[in-house]
């Protein structure tokens, strides 16, 4: 931890150095391997239990005792999975609360959770999602985008319902985009924009436009699309349907609302609408500070 980080974050300084762990650089192959091993463990236990339950009573009494022993072993294995998942979930939940205030401590907790095996599938997805959020917070946009992109290749239905929902959730999930998938896509698009990868951002935006989103996700999509249009020089597109955009921007948190106004002011100035640009700029000044604008990547 640098001196600067310590000054900015006194809470982080309180974390003893020996307790600070860092997550290894993201490797998609490792994530896939972990997911496969988790699945093998769960299905292995499940299949053995089903076989023992099916055959246990048809075998002779001495074999029945052996079957009971195997069944107890499998129940213990299932409990181990549940206990391990519960412990990892506690770490992930704690890390989620600390990502904004104390990223170093959050990373330590996530690193501890990453070492655990086996784990329920939705929890593994949630763990990597939080890691992506942390990397985004640390402005490691390339890694955050890579994690998000990899997670998007999995079926997220179970994770959408929370880690406790288990394997049944996937069977009963609704079609369409859930909040986790939308959240990942929004984060990936934002990272791509920070990395100036307009092609990647465009693809993500297209996918977001094809989905039915909630109000909060729609607001984020609108802000990202406006940023994309300004970066790509599509100023008239950024100003299209302006009354509706301003109406929607007013529903955002104040700093984000101000950032949206600042971006629209840039577009208005670029197309020569000085009155509009001035009006938008004046509103920006009342809604957020220059520091907040910088933090949101809007200069």
């Amino acid at each position: 931890m640098t001196e600067n980080e310590t000054q900015q974050n006194p809470a982080a300084a309180a974390t003893p150095p020996e307790l600070r762990l860092t997550c290894p650089p993201f490797d998609p192959a490792r994530l896939r391997r972990q997911m496969a091993l988790d699945a093998a463990y769960r299905w292995g236990v499940f299949i053995v239990v089903v076989v023992v339950l099916s055959l246990g009573s048809v075998l002779d009494p001495s074999a029945g005792h052996l079957a009971l022993l195997v069944l107890v072993g499998m129940v213990a294995a299932w409990f181990w999975l549940s206990i391990n998942s519960a412990r990892a979930m506690a770490l992930v939940n704690q890390a989620s609360l600390l990502i904004e205030q104390d990223p170093i401590r959050a990373e330590t907790l996530l690193a501890q959770a990453l070492k655990r095996w086996p784990m329920q599938r939705p929890l593994r997805i949630m763990l990597y999602h939080r890691l992506a959020v942390l990397r985004h917070r640390q402005q490691h946009y390339a890694e955050a985008a890579a994690i998000g992109q990899e997670l998007l290749t999995f079926n997220l239905a179970g994770a959408e319902r929370g880690a406790g929902a288990g394997w049944l959730a996937g069977f009963f999930s609704r079609r369409g985009m859930g909040p986790l998938r939308a959240n990942l896509l929004l984060m990936v698009v934002e990272c791509r924009l920070y990395l100036r990868d307009l092609g990647g951002a465009y693809q993500g935006l297209m996918e977001l436009h094809g989905a039915s989103l909630g109000l909060l996700e729609s607001l984020q999509r609108m802000a990202l699309q406006t940023r994309y249009e300004i970066m790509a020089g599509y100023y008239p597109a950024a100003l299209a349907d302006l009354p509706h955009k301003i109406q929607m921007a007013e529903l955002m948190p104040p700093a984000h609302c101000g950032a949206m106004h600042a971006m629209l002011a840039v577009a208005a100035r670029a197309v020569g609408k000085e009155d509009l640009a001035t009006w938008l700029r004046q509103r920006t000044e009342l809604l957020c500070t220059p520091e907040q604008l910088r933090a949101l990547g809007v200069e």
Binding site: L242, P243, H244, I246, Q247, E250, L251, K273, D275, L276, T278, W279, Q282
Partner: peptide, 14 residues
């Protein structure tokens, strides 16, 4: 008050 350039074309307000 500064003129609101979007007020004229604005639909129902939140």
């Amino acid at each position: 008050a500064p003129s609101n350039p979007v007020a004229r074309e604005r639909g129902p307000q939140p």
